[in-house]
Design a protein around this nucleic acid. Structure first.
Lengths: 351, 351
DNA sequence: AAGCTTTGTGCAAAGCCTTGCGGAAGTATT
DNA sequence: AATACTTCCGCAAGGCTTTGCACAAAGCTT
């Protein structure tokens, strides 16, 4: 019916309310109301407007709506690294939850840098995102840059690596409990000198896992030997070096618990290079359960992170803050992990 | 100096030109010009305005600017899958290039589904993104849904999996050349019955790699045996099944070239399960060179994709279309890959 | 002193949408 | 026939920014 118009208007970049109004010789307000089936508008006019809108594929300009309502329907997401499975699967979870609720996500990467993190944060605030969901950069030790965010009343959610938990909503896993379980699992499998390659000291995940490690040792009546607790910065090189230090001890460990899978992989490589056998000579367990874990040889025992759910939960905490008209006390969400036992930690080979 | 105002205005969600104007008793236009150092504005006023703007941390509202300039400074990115290394590293490349040029990226995931791809596309157009950078979903065989995009004159860029190359800018790798090299590499390493597990027939990457495979065979004076060319849908299960079909042949292959690393990993698992040795009994080569390739045992020979560069290049093609005031013929960019020889394909073990 | 040029500012429109309010036409009531 | 209601629609403002144009004041020339 409106074919002749269609071609004409399609040449314009976008169809607006004005376009519709002028075509039908009614006012923009009438069009606006007709589209939302406002009772004030007569059925005939409503029908015509809606028909033309469909014909011309009219969609409201989100920029205009954003301006009006002071919201962009956009969530800013900052991750330390886009490439790692851990983060990309969390992003995937955020994306799905966000989309289900009409939000889009804008991704920024801090590359584990404190300066870059600040920059991303500022950029996203400038962009007027409705909220920010993020994981702290490894470098970040000072948390003052979040003052701006809190003051602007932009909902903020941290996942995995967190800070200021009293002011900001957080999603984490049961790090301590998982580390405790790993330690006990080692003990029950017959290992007695259990080492831990930990991460950077300022990260909450590092502290919590160390805590669980110690707790596990205590429960098994094993002494805590400071020689067996080494730190690394999560890079492969540094994890390799940490492994070498452990293996060079006069009384080396018979089991190693890596703070994450990358660390564990590096350890595995080094252990093999020194012609030690896994799990016979050294037991090995990782954390996060990346896809790699099932590919390496021997397959790696690891703590399964519900990463996708973590992303969804983080987005959910954002939504909760938006819905809450008044300021609410930020909620802390703790997800449970699962220890997946594979070849690298069982004296009796698993299938 | 303006501290007393600062506290007052900070309570508002955002500081606008109006805020500044009212505070200083000048008009909004004066403020706007002063901020951009327009010569029309006196030095005294300019100084005052800029000082207050800094004090109150004024930043222009991108929604208003977008409305005015009819652009959102946003690039929509659609990937079939967020979690795979291949895509996440491409996203990383897009993000870096986009940010360097003042753009933000909005991510959507098609989950390899045709319907979802259409939906994402519509959503992003509705969002008024300035351009779309994407990779086709595996399911997509009909390309009519891009008419809308082309008609709206929204710059469009495909990477890796492409269609309508005459109308849309594309970034791909030298698939055919790489496949040819793999085949020759097998031949030079002494393999004679070289099989290829190909992907879904509708994908350009599948066709090009098959073409290169055949070309390589011809150059080595090897016959093309249809038994040795099998298809899979890129899933692990289907790749495993394909491998089984190959190994069950009365005259099985002594080398397998997988269409990507996931396929190759699945093949590796199956080959090992049948107690065949790699590379002695069967040579194996993958494509894409994910991180896993160096972790598996034996390490996997693979074609290194410049994924990060691919992302940057894709974003660059978008930028080129934006800069070009007039419609330009879309450019095709071909990136070169590199064959990384590891243990899985060399009779003589590499270091 | 009258007229002209600078110099510095503000008005208003445009970009798109929503919504309170006012108003015209028509119908029903008394 | 005059009044009171419906029914249906448009005006205009507000949200934020940019920019062409007009205007006022001041300084200059003749």
């Amino acid at each position: 019916m409106f074919d002749f118009l269609k071609n004409f208007y399609m040449s314009k970049r976008h169809v607006s309310l004005k376009t519709l109004a002028q075509t039908l010789n009614v006012s923009m307000s009438t069009v606006s109301r007709a589209l939302r089936n406002h009772p004030d508008i007569g059925p005939e006019v409503t029908r015509k407007v809606q028909e033309l809108a469909r014909e011309l594929q009219y969609t409201p300009n989100p920029l205009a709506i954003g301006l009006l309502k002071d919201r962009s329907s956009t969530i800013g997401v900052i991750v330390p690294d886009l490439v790692t499975y851990f983060f990309s699967s969390i992003i995937s979870g955020i994306e799905s939850m966000a989309n289900e609720h009409g939000y889009h996500i804008v991704i920024r990467c801090s590359y584990e840098s404190y300066e870059k993190e600040k920059e991303c944060l500022q950029d996203l605030l400038r962009l007027r995102v409705d909220g920010i969901v993020m994981c702290l950069a490894q470098e970040t030790q000072d948390y003052a840059h979040f003052d701006t965010v809190l003051k602007s009343e932009t909902p903020l959610v941290f996942f995995d690596r967190v800070c200021r938990p009293d002011e900001v909503a957080t999603v984490v896993v049961d790090n301590q409990e998982a580390a405790r379980r790993i330690t006990r699992h080692f003990f029950e499998s017959g290992y007695r000198r259990i080492a831990h390659i930990a991460g950077p000291a300022q990260l909450n995940i590092t502290r919590e896992r160390i805590e669980g490690y110690k707790q596990g040792l205590a429960e098994c009546n094993l002494p805590f030997d400071t020689d067996l607790l080494v730190h690394c910065d999560l890079s492969i090189a540094s994890a390799t070096a940490a492994t070498q230090r452990l293996l060079a001890l006069s009384s080396p460990p018979d089991a190693i618990f890596g703070v994450n899978d990358t660390t564990a992989f590096a350890a595995m490589k080094e252990i093999k290079r020194q012609h030690l056998r896994i799990p016979q000579d050294i037991g090995l367990v990782g954390f996060t359960d990346e896809f790699h874990a099932t590919v390496v040889e021997p397959t790696l025992t690891s703590v399964m992170h519900p990463t996708y759910e973590m992303g969804r939960e983080a987005a959910l905490l954002f939504l909760a803050q938006v819905d809450a008209k008044v300021a609410i006390t930020p909620s802390q969400s703790v997800l449970t992990t699962q220890l997946v036992v594979r070849e690298s930690s069982s004296m009796i080979p698993v299938e």
